[in-house]
């Protein structure tokens, strides 16, 4: 629904282990973390192994298994979270195409609600 706002502009940066960028929920309300079924990330056409993605909300990093079990924490509507990706060697400075998708388990929908976005972001040198 808010797919085109999922990846936050100008948010790509390098980390010690790879890179990170910011995301928003694509659904029209916030959800319990346990409703997050997973994220997919592709960088310059190369898929990122899903188990190397961490979801970081308010400074706390979650693995998928940790999200699955957290029925109290909430990712709020419009709240900016971060996907931290392990990417050996890191990304070169310059422009990169990031594709990201999120899947949410919404009880009134038959299958997962999938939101996705693709943006070209500049990694400052």
């Amino acid at each position: 629904m808010f797919d085109r706002y999922m990846i936050v502009e100008d948010s790509l940066r390098s980390t010690d282990q790879g890179f990170a960028f910011d995301i928003r929920i694509t659904y029209y309300r916030g959800v319990a973390l346990s409703l997050i079924e997973g994220f997919e990330v592709t960088v310059d056409g190369q898929p990122v192994p899903r188990d190397t993605i961490r979801f970081v909300l308010r400074g706390v990093a979650y693995t998928q298994a940790e999200l699955d079990h957290d029925t109290d924490g909430r990712w709020e509507f419009g709240e900016i979270a971060t996907l931290v990706v392990e990417w050996p060697g890191g990304l070169s400075s310059g422009v990169h195409t990031i594709e990201a998708a999120q899947q949410l388990r919404i009880s009134y929908l038959p299958g997962p609600l999938r939101g996705q976005d693709t943006k070209t972001l500049l990694l400052a040198g």
Binding site: R29, V31, A32, S34, L35, E37, D68, T71, R105, S107
Partner: peptide, 9 residues
């Protein structure tokens, strides 16, 4: 209101 019937996986 919403009801997260599938709150757990």
């Amino acid at each position: 209101m919403f009801l997260d019937i599938r709150r757990w996986k």
